[in-house]
Design a protein around this nucleic acid. Structure first.
Lengths: 137, 137
DNA sequence: GATAGGGCTTCCCATCATGGCAAGGTCAAG
DNA sequence: CTTGACCTTGCCATGATGGGAAGCCCTATC
C-alpha cells in the first residue's frame, strides 16, 4: 500500500502521514526499492486511531500518549481515562470561554439598532466598555 | 509615552504593538529623535479597542474591519452588527463542535472502569469505533 | 520501446498570533 | 561615567496543516 492509498483509506493526508513520521508519532514506514513508503494493515489501523483522536480534539502530543497506551497491552484503563478527562476539562474551559464571548456579543448586538445610523453600542463597548456591559444595566 | 508604557496601559505587549503596526492594523507610531515610538491618548484608545476585540475572539482581520467602522463616523450600525453576528455564528459553530467532542468523550469515560485493568472502551473507540459509540447501544 | 500522466520523494515557504532571544542604541539615576 | 532598564531591528519557534517546485518512478497506451 502506497502513501496515497493509505491516505484515502484513513482520511489522513499524505502530507500529514509524512509529518507524523517526521515528528516520531508513528514509526518510519517501510520502503520499496524505489524509496516509496509502504503501509500494511497495522499502519492503517494506527493512522485511523490517530485520525479519530485528532477528530476528538486531542492534540498530537495527547494523541501520542494515547497511542502509547494503546500499544501497551498492560496499561491501566485509569491512565487512559485520566488523559481523556483532562482533555474534557480543557474542552470545557474553552467552551466556557467561547460562551462568554457569545453572551457578551449577543447582548451588544441586541442593543444595536442595526440600521443606517452610526450610533452603535458594539463599538462603544469595544471603545471603552464604560457603558452598561451586561447584567448591571 | 513609550511603547512599554503603552503596553502596560493597554495590556497589549510591546511585541504585538509592533506587529500590529507592521501588518498595517494601526498607523505607524510617531518617533522621537532617538527613534523611539511615541504614543498619545488616541493611540492608547485604539490599542484598547483592539485588545477588547481580540478578547472577544475577533480575528485580527475582523478587528481591522471593526476599527475601520469605528473610525468612520458615518458608518451604519447595521454593518457593525453584521460583523458581530457573523462572529457569533463562528463561535457557536465552534462551541457545537467542542460540545460534540465532550459528549463523546464523557460517554466513553463513563464506560471506562478507570482501574488497573487494561480493558478500555476509550481506546476501543479510537481503534475502530465499531463498539457502541453513543446513542445506538 | 517511447511517451504521457499520475504518484512518489524531499525541501522550502505560508498560515495565525504570539513569544523569545540577540546585538546594539538610548536614557536616567547615581 | 557606569549601570541598569528600556528601546530598536531581525531572526527563529510554536502547532497543525496546506501549497508548490524539482526530480524520480510506475503503468498504460501507442
Amino acid at each position: 500500500m502506497n502513501i496515497g492509498q493509505a491516505s484515502t483509506a484513513t482520511g489522513v493526508s499524505a502530507k500529514m502521514i509524512r509529518y507524523y513520521e517526521s515528528i516520531g508519532l508513528i514509526e518510519p514506514a517501510g520502503r520499496t526499492q524505489s524509496n516509496y513508503r509502504v503501509y500494511g494493515a497495522d499502519d492503517i489501523h494506527e493512522l485511523r486511531f490517530i485520525k479519530r483522536a485528532r477528530t476528538l480534539g486531542f492534540s498530537v502530543e495527547e494523541t501520542a500518549q494515547l497511542l502509547a497506551l494503546w500499544r501497551d497491552k498492560t496499561r491501566a484503563s485509569a491512565d487512559v481515562k485520566r488523559v481523556a478527562l483532562a482533555h474534557v476539562a480543557e474542552l470545557q474551559t474553552k467552551i466556557i470561554e467561547l460562551e462568554g464571548m457569545v453572551q457578551t456579543l449577543k447582548h451588544l448586538a441586541d442593543c444595536c439598532g442595526g440600521n443606517e445610523r452610526p450610533n452603535c453600542p458594539i463599538l462603544e463597548d469595544l471603545a471603552g466598555a464604560t457603558t452598561h456591559a451586561k447584567g448591571h444595566h
